[in-house]
Design a protein around this nucleic acid. Sequence first.
DNA 1: CTCAAGGGAGAACGATCGTTCTCCGACTGC
DNA 2: GCAGTCGGAGAACGATCGTTCTCCCTTGAG
Lengths: 192, 192
Amino acid sequence: MFSAPAGVGMDHREQVLDAAGALFYERGIQAVGMAEIRTAAGVSLKRLYQCFASKDELVESYLRRRDRRWREQLAGHVAGNPGVLSVFDWLRDWFADPGFRGCAFINSFGELGATSDAVARAAREHKAALREFLLDQLTGDDREKRADQLLMLVDGAITTAAITGDPGAADTARDAARTLITKPPNSLSSVT
Amino acid sequence: MFSAPAGVGMDHREQVLDAAGALFYERGIQAVGMAEIRTAAGVSLKRLYQCFASKDELVESYLRRRDRRWREQLAGHVAGNPGVLSVFDWLRDWFADPGFRGCAFINSFGELGATSDAVARAAREHKAALREFLLDQLTGDDREKRADQLLMLVDGAITTAAITGDPGAADTARDAARTLITKPPNSLSSVT
DNA sequence: CTCAAGGGAGAACGATCGTTCTCCGACTGC
DNA sequence: GCAGTCGGAGAACGATCGTTCTCCCTTGAG
């Protein structure tokens, strides 16, 4: 998922990014070595280091490209199915993908966010961009608050689906999102 | 946080778990070596391996103990402040802790869930237990659905707070949770 | 005091990592 | 055909990891 069609003119950089991206996402960053990436990409180690000066640079490119593609796919789906709630329909399809392993940015942040500024920044930027996207789908004077709430539902659904393996998390989150969006801001009853 | 008071009779196992737990949580599991744990715990390497036969075993013990303590603290807070929503007040305090680095189970799952069954299982069990706890705080015929929704808000809030560093995520989630709990199941309007 | 036992400090070992280097075969222009 | 260049395959290197082993000092019993 989130891969571009394999064109004939695809250069080595893309080959490497495809292989590394799949491995990083599936098994984690530290668990995948450069030698394995080299084998999966079908390039020589020398060329690998010509394309990316270091593993850190490769990791950063992987995250940047995944962020772009992930948001493109999401935006594409929502463009064809208007309404914020369609975000959760798209999530459901993603969760049902056999290769689904959670959010690459949450995973990377948990693994390396404390030691790598680049990874931490990539995760922050990804989530900020997602929040901005959700904001664009909302109207009303409490858009900001609702965008924040939806962002949490999205992240919670991704995490829950990843850990439990149940794509139904998307439906649960969609239901919650519908309630949050439908409901008038100030309720009558107050349960504490 | 989630540490027991340092008693005089604390045995070496606890010393090691304290040191390893703090390091694992702060920097990730793979980023912390046994030598560093040994130094932080102030025990010899020989004794470390007498307490835990391998790093895997130490990691599993770390996760199991953290799960127990985390849920004890949460349950303690909610016992003193009845109502599900107090969960989010407790989360806020946790998020504001300088050492807060997200959910240890989400982080570990992202880092090692694909390669270690023990870690994946620990994360699943932790989230299942949390869901059970939330379920216990709810009444009504749609308790199950609401527990699932609250679980997502909790995980989403933890993740968002970890990545953005803003403890206010707890308030946002609390607001959403209040709406979800207050709202009657079937709304009149339908926004799609 | 002698001596056996145990534990502490950390060296040693084998594996693996990221990165660089070496070698060698294949292609280019002439 | 041939010198020269390029790139592929993977060995080599230094660092670091988890784990084990060695050495030495302490301690307590007799």
